[in-house]
Design a protein around this nucleic acid. Structure first.
Lengths: 225, 225
DNA sequence: TACATCTGACGACAAACAATGTCAATTTAT
DNA sequence: ATAAATTGACATTGTTTGTCGTCAGATGTA
């Protein structure tokens, strides 16, 4: 009689620790995102368990299920965070240099910014290697980001070379190939512990862009034996 | 007394089913490799269990542990099989066309051969997406194959353009970038269910090679605003 | 101060799976 | 034919993990 075990959902929410209910919720989400970034980026997604994640976030299981519900969803959220920041930064670098200098230099600045951010091995790992082969949903997300990055490159190309109008499908292939070039360079850089200095990596990948740009400027390439 | 439970290892080996001991062993290995190729290439490595693999191979657990001992080792063996065949075929295609035609056409033939083999989605999946983020050992294997493929490209470039001698590290970066371009195109092709026809994919990626080749032939690129 | 809500530590339980063992049935050599 | 070697189906054990529940203590409100 003394204690009725009516364990229903809380009917009212209060401030706690100086934060409102929604603020606390957002705070916990942030903590899980940070913990996921750290663990996925170091030991990897597959070796991360709910327990290890909660320990890292200094929160308990209950809040994890409240905030994300599954490690996959958290992985996708962490990935999106990283990719959005990455694209935003690269676009800023391009915008800062393009009106001022020529297209080649602008591309170089963008590539440089890209590898600069990927010097954080956690970012590199999450954006480059941790997403493949998890599940169809994750694959779809990953594919969509790759393609959107390719589309960005194509948009830039359209601006710099308005007269260039090849087969749209081929354009898409070229965009994706360039993204792949950037991705593989970064992956290899990461896997070999950043042994090559950034300037060299930037210069190398930049040559691929340069070659294409020359091709666009002077169509009808000469072929040698 | 009647039955002594001395369950020691077999001391002698006999022929069985018309095959010697070592032939049977090799046969089982083959069966596991085929089963691994099928499962890793369709449902993926992470959803493959020892049981499902043995069921596919029509063999029992015991033989799996005898043959490979772990799914990781089998994955590595399957991957190596695929990659060796892939590189061999691409090199053949190059060798068949290079003396006859120019470098550009030879590269195109090699790329075409590459995508031809990757039209088998199982090969594509195993070579492109299933290997990342499994374990340090697998990562090392994967990295070594990417790098060796890049080295092959550099060797070819040295033959076609003996006078080209840039920074060796930058050469390596360029080689790896090209591998990445080929890889990403293939991955995207796979992920989008081969919607684009092969000729277009080949033409697109080929342009990256072409741009670089022009760059090598005519150094000191002009830059436009 | 008294009471409702919130929080975190801990444990319970089931599911999936690797890894090893048991045993009857089959095949081969002597 | 008989015994030894081989094979395959099945059971067992132990571990890891996700998921949910319990409960005491902390925090804010009336």
């Amino acid at each position: 009689m003394a204690a009725m075990d009516i364990t229903e959902k809380p009917l009212s929410s209060r401030t706690y620790g100086g934060m409102s209910s929604s603020e606390r919720k957002a705070q916990r989400k942030k903590q899980f995102l940070a913990a996921g970034f750290e663990l996925f980026g170091t030991t990897g997604f597959r070796s991360t368990t709910v327990r290890s994640l909660c320990k890292q976030a200094k929160l308990t299981d209950r809040y994890f299920y409240e905030s994300f519900g599954s490690l996959e969803k958290l992985l996708m959220a962490v990935y999106e965070d990283c990719m959005l920041k990455l694209t935003k930064e690269v676009l800023s670098a391009l915008a800062e240099t393009y009106p001022k200098t020529n297209a080649s230099e602008a591309i170089k600045a963008g590539i440089n910014r890209y590898f600069e951010l990927l010097e954080d091995s956690r970012v590199a790992r999450i954006c480059m290697v941790e997403l493949e082969g998890i599940s169809p949903e994750v694959d779809a997300l990953y594919t969509s980001y790759i393609r959107s990055f390719g589309k960005i490159l194509n948009t830039l190309a359209s601006k710099a070379y308005p007269n260039w109008s090849p087969n749209p499908q081929e354009r898409e292939v070229i965009g994706i190939s360039l993204v792949g070039a950037l991705r593989q360079s970064a992956t290899n850089w990461l896997m070999t512990d950043y042994q090559i200095d950034r300037a060299t990596v930037v210069a190398g990948t930049h040559k691929l862009f340069l070659g294409l740009m020359n091709l666009i400027e002077a169509p009808g390439p000469k072929t040698q034996s």
